[in-house]
Design a protein around this nucleic acid. Sequence first.
DNA 1: TTAGTTGTTCTCAGCATGAGTAATTCTGTT
DNA 2: AACAGAATTACTCATGCTGAGAACAACTAA
Lengths: 249, 249
Amino acid sequence: MPNESEFLAEYDARSYAPVAVTVDVVALTIRDGQLCVLLVERAEHPFAGRRALPGGFVRVDEGPDEAALRELGEETGLRPGEGALQRVHLEQLRTYGKPGRDPRMRVFSIAYLAFAPELPDPRAGSDASDALWVPIASARKLAFDHDTILADGLDRARSKLEYTPLATAFVDDEFTIAELRQVYAAVWGEDLHAGNFHRKVLSVPGFVESTGHTAARGGERGGPKPKLYRAGDAKLLHPALLRREDDVR
Amino acid sequence: MPNESEFLAEYDARSYAPVAVTVDVVALTIRDGQLCVLLVERAEHPFAGRRALPGGFVRVDEGPDEAALRELGEETGLRPGEGALQRVHLEQLRTYGKPGRDPRMRVFSIAYLAFAPELPDPRAGSDASDALWVPIASARKLAFDHDTILADGLDRARSKLEYTPLATAFVDDEFTIAELRQVYAAVWGEDLHAGNFHRKVLSVPGFVESTGHTAARGGERGGPKPKLYRAGDAKLLHPALLRREDDVR
DNA sequence: TTAGTTGTTCTCAGCATGAGTAATTCTGTT
DNA sequence: AACAGAATTACTCATGCTGAGAACAACTAA
């Protein structure tokens, strides 16, 4: 059996194949009741002028998770550890690595999915000035294979709402049941029965807990002052909040 | 704006960081009612003598999916396109890339999950002679971070049985309801109520379809000759076949 | 004040589930 | 040849969850 140093030598030889590993982030938020994704306009070749998911190289000293959070912070203009950025939920989606997906060289892209409450517009004049929130209906013809990545991310987001309390990542710390319902409506693209949703949310253990507070005022067009809730400690919803069969398609 | 060739030059400079991309496969099958995973014994440094998930480098001319299928074929001794290997279901699990997870260099490993019907033992004397099926209870202390990858794979497999017809990937082309039930029992590690399972499987549209045939003989210890079914065309089970809440934990 | 909207709670029928029972058909053994 | 044990399949029944609709009160905008 060869010794360890011989193996390391063989390794180094193989490793010099020109391979890059990047992260791309599908960052979702809800603005004005619409599900939106964070996109950047590419200034560089290839696909200059086209929109793309924010992303970049994974540095030698960081893991993919850290790289994704860093990229998200850079593009939104929020500092890591800064308020709103701490509330985002980040999870790995999947990795895309077919030969030819980047015309420059072999690139493996680890895609991430981020759920954020309503964030401020990326700061003008900063590095992030080219980033913007785009309603998903308008997010088409993206650079590289980012259309596919976005579609996969939306699929994942829609099904995660069913069996996890992730909808709470889209709203503020204190929220009303109606706000939570609007998250489901925006992500699933369908209206939900207000009464049944109310009953369901309150009956699933650990989904939400009461704050005892009441909102300062009712809805814009009327209605009583709703009660306020915060996220519970459940990681999984039991029983789940399932979509209607026709919508799953 | 710089032109494209200037960008390509900048790219080449960055790309020579010593980075490798591999695939690792969590291949599951059921043998004698036990859920088993395919493992190889490492002959080389590091972790020589320890067991590990089968895997290897993604070649320059292939995508990650192809690489995973090729590795699985090499380790099981089955040729691609050869009978049993065509029936395996293969899906990407997630990518592991924390610095230091491989002591030699920076390695990103794209993990795959494979579901296979009972496969023959890897051929002795072939390249795959060091591979073997191990009951998951005995698959511990694996090389690298493969314990984590295996655990993630099992989580995924268990929850996929709930809402997809993937259990049919563990059985032969024609199977009985009882065989299907034993798949669930083995993967979830709990016994299921035979009557309710029967009713449920037949009531979910597209899960199984009748072949009209009947098994040649009853169970080993008695019982009538069961009817035979084949997998239906559903990709998702509606309504899902949910685990009891206590088991999800 | 009025009209319209919304939060919240009920009611009710339908469906799915978990648990148990029973008829029937086998296999292996006495 | 008979028997015991076991497995498939089909039931029943009580319970709980769901979707749909209705009711009521609280509130906003006009």
